[in-house]
Nucleic acid binder design. Structure first.
Lengths: 339, 339
DNA sequence: GCGCATCGTCGAAGCGCTTCGAAAGATCGC
DNA sequence: GCGATCTTTCGAAGCGCTTCGACGATGCGC
C-alpha cells in the first residue's frame, strides 16, 4: 500500500518527478530515474487504480457485453469472452464481464459512470437492442458480429458469405452435384442471430450461381438425425454436406450417416464452415473454415484500443477472410459424363 | 456527464447534501431528498466510478480468477464465471475476468492496485499456486474448490465425498453388488484438479464400508469405450455405474453399453454424480447429483461480499450438500439369495 | 558577460466523490 | 425566555494520482 508520496520521499524527489519518471511523459535524468525506479521497486509500489483513473480520465477497463440466450452454445461464447480478455490484457486493459440482462444495462452503466473506456459487444443479433444503445453512449464500442442496421457502428466478423461461397466452390470444383446444408436450429434464426442467416443466403446464391442442386435443413434437436433424413428426401443423390451448425449436431453426423449405410467422405464429402468448435477429434475429422474467436476478438480489441487511445473511430465493417483447414473430408467425384 | 456539483446546483443544495441524500448515510428531510432525487433524475446523473472508488476506498469490483487448462471443459467453466458475475451483480458488484496466465498475475495486480475489493478463485488445483498468493494478498478471497492445504482459506464446494457416499448407498440399497466408477481422465487427476480425487477416495471408502465389489477406471479419450471394457474385465457381473467424469464421456455411455448388449437401467443402473452438465437430454437420462455452478458461486460471492462489507472473513470450508435428481436410471435388483 | 533557449525538477491545481466536524435552525424543559 | 439538545445542512479536507506552468540551472551565441 505504498503511495507515490512514499516513493518520492524514498527517492528524495518530488511527487511529480516520480510520476514523470514512471510514465516517461517528460524527460528525467537517467540518474534520477534510476533512483525512482529503485525506490518504487523497493517499496513494491503499484499506483492506486482508482486514483490513476480519476486523474488520467482513463480506466484501462473494457466492458464485454455477453448476453446468454437460452439456445446459446456456452463453450463457444466462453471462447469469445476469454479471447477478448486475453487480447485486452496484451494492450494493458482489464475486462469487465456483463452477462444476461446486465449485458444491456451494464453497457449503459459502465459507460455513464466512466467505469469502462470502451465496450466489446458479443453475440450480436440481427436486431440487437444494443445497437441503438451504442449509438447514443458516446463510448467507443466494437461489435463482434454484424447486425442488420450497421449505421454508425464498428463491426468485426468472419466473412460468412465468403466462407459459404468457398465451401460451395470447393465442392462443385471437386465434382459434387447435390449439396445439402445443415444450418442452425430454426429458433436460432428466428431469434435473429445474424451469421446463420448470412451464411444461408450466400450458400443459396452460390449454389444458384454454380448451377448445382441443393437443399437446406434446420435440425430439430441436438443430433443430425432428422436433418439427414430430410436432405436425402430432397436430394436422393446427395454427395456433399455443408455444416453451419452447432457442435452436437455436427459431431453426430458420422454415426447418423452410418445408419443409412453412408460413409464420409467415401459417399458424402463434408465441410464444416463458420463453426466455432473443432472437428479434429471427430470420428471423421471434417474440413473446416473455423469461426476463430481469437481472430475476431483480436481485431475487435485492436480497433477498440485504437479508438480509445488514438481517437480513430470511424464506422466500418471489418470482415475477416476464412481460412480453409483441410482434413481430407472432401474427395473428388467423377463428374457424370466423364469416364 | 453530469457531476454531483451539477445536481447540487440544480437542487439548490450543497454537494454533501446531495451525497447524503443519495447514499442515505445521514438523515435528510424528505422534501430536500425529493428535490435532490428529481434533479439527479433530470440530469441523468450517475456518480463517476473512479471518483467514488477513490473517495470511498471501495471499487465494487470483484476479480474472478479463472485459469484455462488445456484439459478444461470450457462450457463448465463458462458457467462458473457467468454465475459468479450474475450473483455479484445482485450484490451490486461488477466482475473483472482474469484468465490464462493472468489468473495468477492479475490477482496480485488487482489486489495491489486496489482495483478489486475481493477475489473469487475458480478451477482450483490440489496444489494451486494461487493458495500461497491469496494468503499474502490482504484482499478478501474465496476459493470455489478445495485445495490440499486450506490453512487460512475460505473455500466453497459441493460436498463431493457426500455425493460419492450417497451414490454408493443408493445403489447398494437398491440391491446392486458390482459397482464401477468412471472417473475423470488420468491427466486431470495428475494435474491435481481437486474434486475428482476427493470423489474417488470417498467412493472407494464407501464401497469398502458397505462391502460391495467395485472397480475404478479413467477414460483415455472422449468416449466411455475403453472404460466400459476395463470395468467389465474386472467386474463381469457389473450392475451399476457411477459417473464422475466429463460430458462427452458420459453422453457416449448408452451407445457404448448397447454395443455389448447392455441397456441402462435394465442391465446397469447409472448415477452421474458431481458433474456440471445436465443428463436431461441424453438418450437415457441418468440420475444426477449436479455440481451446480449457481449454488457454489452464489455461496462464494455471499461469503466474499460479507467479508468485504462486514469484515467477517474467518477461514472455513463450506461444503454444499448434494441434491439427488431422480430420472429413473436406478432400478432395484433382486439380491442374490432372496427369492 | 549578457540575454535567450533548453533541460530537469518542483509546486500546486485539479479529477469527482465521501465524510467529518461544525454551524445554523428548530425544539424543548423549566 | 434562555440555555441545552437535536436535527438538518454546509464547508472543507482529503483520497492518490496526473499534468500544467514556472523556476532555477545550465549551455549557447555574440
Amino acid at each position: 500500500m505504498a503511495t507515490i508520496a512514499d516513493v518520492a520521499q524514498a527517492a528524495g524527489v518530488s511527487i511529480s518527478t516520480v510520476s514523470y519518471a514512471l510514465s516517461g511523459k517528460r524527460s528525467i535524468t537517467a540518474q534520477t530515474r534510476e533512483r525512482v525506479l529503485a525506490a518504487a521497486d523497493e517499496l513494491g509500489y503499484l499506483p492506486h487504480a482508482s486514483a490513476r483513473m480519476l486523474a488520467a480520465h482513463r480506466s484501462h477497463i473494457i466492458a464485454v457485453s455477453e448476453p446468454v440466450h437460452p439456445d446459446t452454445d456456452d463453450a463457444a461464447h466462453m471462447a469469445f469472452a476469454m479471447q477478448t480478455t486475453r487480447v485486452a490484457r496484451e494492450h494493458n486493459y482489464d475486462t469487465l464481464l456483463l452477462v444476461h440482462d446486465d449485458a444491456f444495462e451494464g453497457m449503459r452503466r459502465s459507460a455513464a459512470t466512466q467505469l469502462a473506456d470502451g465496450i466489446v459487444v458479443l453475440d450480436v443479433d440481427v436486431d440487437d437492442a444494443r445497437v441503438p444503445l451504442a449509438r447514443k453512449l458516446a463510448c467507443p464500442t466494437v461489435f463482434v458480429g454484424v447486425p442488420a442496421d450497421t449505421e454508425g457502428l464498428v463491426c468485426v466478423d468472419l466473412d460468412f458469405e465468403a466462407a459459404a461461397r468457398q465451401a460451395v466452390d470447393r465442392l462443385v470444383d471437386a465434382g459434387h452435384t447435390q449439396i445439402g446444408l445443415i444450418s442452425h436450429r430454426q429458433e436460432t434464426l428466428t431469434r435473429g442471430s445474424n451469421f446463420p442467416l448470412r451464411f444461408l443466403r450466400a450458400f443459396l446464391d452460390q449454389c444458384e450461381a454454380r448451377g448445382v442442386r441443393h437443399a437446406v435443413t434446420h435440425p430439430n434437436g441436438h443430433t443430425a438425425d432428422g436433418s439427414v433424413r430430410r436432405l436425402l428426401e430432397q436430394l436422393p443423390g446427395l454427395d456433399a454436406i455443408v455444416l453451419n451448425t452447432t457442435a452436437d449436431v455436427a459431431s453426430s453426423l458420422s454415426a447418423i450417416l452410418a445408419t443409412r449405410g453412408l460413409e464420409a467422405p467415401r459417399d458424402v464429402s463434408v465441410i464444416a464452415a463458420g463453426v466455432s468448435f473443432t472437428t479434429a477429434r471427430f470420428a471423421v475429422p471434417f474440413d473446416t473454415m473455423p469461426l476463430d474467436a481469437h481472430a475476431s476478438c483480436s481485431a475487435a480489441v485492436d480497433l477498440l484500443v485504437q479508438a480509445i487511445d488514438g481517437g480513430e473511430h470511424t464506422p466500418r465493417i471489418v470482415l475477416l477472410p476464412p481460412t480453409y483447414i483441410d482434413r481430407g473430408s472432401v474427395i473428388a467425384r467423377a463428374t457424370p459424363g466423364s469416364p
